[in-house]
């Protein structure tokens, strides 16, 4: 499945014929690449180099001016919410955030009623995070506007995988042919699931490394190789992606303690020597220094791409917001929603 992925958009195919971005499963490789390519321009703009918009100077573009973007986060988030908010504002959208505490969910309103309420406010794009796998898809079916999944349960977190891919591509120049090890709590991770889809589609070889209690059952059937030893799993890899281990899972439920975890599954200088020269270290954040990653590796600007990932996050989300709202903005070549597959 990692052999010669179809990376080129076939003649006549629309670059992104989807109304929503609910996950990476079901996207064609060239559609993923299209989003990455689109994100490149926003990296430049965000760095302050691009003054391409007629309306604003510096980090601003007005193509989403007049559109309303709702960030509905039914699960706590700081980084992703901030990233989506900045992405929307840099494109000129009117961004509104709805947090769990400010919503009627706590008052017993069903999720579908909340969806209908949000829909009635005529947003032009809605970004949703929810603690239940499949919840974003359920809401999307009731919304009259594009829906972006900002993480649903253990299912998918597509923009995170896209920003990871953009980071890798900018650092390594390619994704195809690389070996990527994803290490840590794979079982509960939507980031890992989205990355399986994306990295395999783009031709990387994916390994997962974790204690057996944190490996999802039958994960090998998802096209990844599973390891339970860090030294084995890191052998010759080009990229190491560390995942955050939730503290509530370290008190004996899945692993006995943080110190035992760090001793056998933490990323240390010594372990990293098994990887290929020039290995890139990534982490979706927030990091637990001394639990899953040694502080000195995280701070090493040559090998660590952690802050770059955050930077790419804004660019990727700008690209997604732009692409998904094109049909309602009447951009030539982007048929109205409903006409798209």
């Amino acid at each position: 499945m990692t052999n010669s992925p179809n990376l080129v958009t076939p003649a006549g195919a629309h670059p992104f014929p989807h109304s929503h971005l609910l996950g990476l499963a079901g996207l064609q490789p060239w559609e993923m690449l299209y989003l990455l390519d689109e994100a490149e321009q926003w990296v430049e703009l965000n760095r302050g180099a691009g003054r391409q918009s007629g309306n604003g100077a510096g980090k601003h573009d007005n193509r989403l001016a007049g559109l309303t973007q709702i960030n509905a986060f039914f699960e706590n988030s700081t980084r992703t919410l901030l990233s989506f908010e900045i992405a929307g504002k840099r494109l000129g959208a009117d961004v509104v955030n709805l947090g769990v505490s400010g919503s009627s969910v706590k008052k017993g309103e069903t999720l579908l009623d909340t969806a209908l309420t949000l829909s009635a406010m005529h947003p032009d794009v809605i970004v949703i995070r929810h603690g239940s796998s499949g919840a974003v898809q359920l809401i999307a079916e009731k919304m009259g506007c594009p829906v972006l999944n900002a993480g649903d349960g253990r299912h998918e977190h597509p923009t995170q995988a896209l920003l990871d891919a953009l980071t890798i591509r900018r650092r390594k120049g390619r994704i195809e042919g690389l070996t990527v090890a994803i290490c840590g709590d794979i079982l509960h991770s939507r980031v890992a699931r989205s990355n399986f889809q994306l990295l395999a589609a783009l031709g990387a070889k994916v390994r997962v490394v974790a204690p057996p209690t944190l490996l999802p059952p039958h994960v090998d059937q998802l096209g990844v190789d599973a390891y339970t030893s860090m030294d084995e799993g890191l052998k010759g890899v080009d990229v190491v992606m560390m995942l955050r281990l939730q503290t509530e899972r370290m008190d004996g439920a899945y692993v006995p303690s943080t110190r035992e975890y760090f001793r056998f599954f933490g990323l240390t200088e010594e372990r990293l020597r098994h990887a290929a020269p020039g290995v890139l270290v990534m982490h979706p954040g927030p990091m637990n220094r001394g639990v899953e990653i040694d502080g000195s590796i995280a701070d090493d600007i040559v090998r660590s791409a952690v802050t770059e990932q955050v930077e790419m996050g804004v660019a990727v989300r700008m690209a997604c917001l732009d692409v998904l709202t094109r049909s309602r903005r009447g951009v030539a070549g982007w048929p109205p929603i409903g006409a798209a597959a």
């Binding site: 253990r154 939507r190 994960v219």
Partner: peptide, 15 residues
Amino acid sequence: TEGAYATRLGLAAAP
């Protein structure tokens, strides 16, 4: 039920 299907969908599963 534990299996590739539940893993793909990210559903909590039992063997």
